[in-house]
């Protein structure tokens, strides 16, 4: 994927270090507090694509929010390039399950939102960058479209362009494709691999879909719930671009699914 001229220099991708992070949620209604994360330690290399997988309530989304700086851990810390994360910052942008696009702006305006908050660019440069990323996600014909006019897949494409445009070092994705139909999802798997190959971002991707994780990740990290802990890690050395329907991929995902079922079984046994 050739980059357009005049784009700012590629910023370095970040190393992330999650160090012994714990987090509890105090819920008034439930009889017990939720122990979302318990002593989680995880290293993410520069430009690595890591998928966090696990049953609901295993703390994978909480960990993503902590890396984003939207939530603070009770203990432990997360370092980005060696510096502790103290709050949200534009070097770590998030894509949510719902697109979170702003309905009062069109697609172009949404992509410009983060760029306008980035200093050191002229407005002409910002427009150029926005157009570049809108084209990268294949929405160049829809730059003027209103958000409610987009399909679910197009919304997530626009959200991806919005997250990529300010050129963050880390892209955090919280089940971004969970609400889409299978066909749209498969297209987006192709897109995200193509874009990742072109822009080499560090990506942390949360999902409960094992095949999705195997298709996208260099590494799949399996979480277990109550308390949220890292159970097992899997390296996925398959060549890219990967096809989610390939046999090799199915082999890895059945192995991980088996481990996941073991976790669910443990959970049932504990509940009895």
């Amino acid at each position: 994927m050739p980059l357009v001229d005049g784009l700012p220099e590629e910023e370095q991708s970040a190393k992330l270090a999650v160090e012994n992070v714990s987090k509890r949620f105090h819920t008034g209604r439930r009889q017990q507090d939720v122990h979302a994360l318990d002593g989680v330690t995880l290293q993410v290399a520069e430009g690595e694509f890591v998928c966090l997988v696990g049953p609901s309530g295993c703390g994978k989304s909480t960990l993503l929010n902590i890396i984003a700086g939207l939530e603070m851990p009770d203990s432990g810390q997360v370092l980005a390039d060696g510096a502790p994360i103290l709050g949200p910052g534009r070097h770590r942008l998030v894509m949510f399950q719902e697109s979170g696009l702003f309905p009062w702006l069109d697609v172009f305006g949404n992509v410009m939102f983060g760029l306008k908050l980035k200093e050191g660019l002229t407005n002409a440069e910002r427009r150029k960058v926005a157009q570049f990323y809108i084209k990268l996600v294949g929405l160049e014909k829809f730059a003027d479209a209103n958000i409610h006019e987009l399909s679910g897949g197009m919304k997530q494409r626009a959200a991806l362009a919005r997250a990529l445009a300010p050129n963050p070092r880390v892209l955090l994705m919280d089940e971004p494709f969970a609400a889409l139909d299978a066909l749209t999802r498969e297209q987006l798997y192709g897109d995200i691999q193509r874009i990742w190959a072109a822009r080499k971002k560090t990506i942390v991707f949360v999902t409960h879909n094992v095949r999705e994780a195997v298709c996208l990740g260099d590494r799949v990290v399996l979480f277990s719930p109550n308390p949220g802990r890292i159970r097992q890690e899997f390296h996925i050395p398959l060549p890219r671009p990967r096809d989610i329907n390939s046999v090799e991929l199915a082999g890895y995902s059945s192995q991980i699914t088996k481990a996941l079922k073991g976790i669910l079984h443990d959970g049932d046994a504990a509940a009895e």
């Binding site: 939207l70 949200p88 942008l93 998030v94 949510f96 979170g100 702003f102 939102f113 983060g114 908050l117």
Partner: peptide, 9 residues
């Protein structure tokens, strides 16, 4: 909306 805006600074 507020969360997305916060992450973008």
């Amino acid at each position: 909306y507020a969360r997305a805006a916060r992450t973008m600074g």
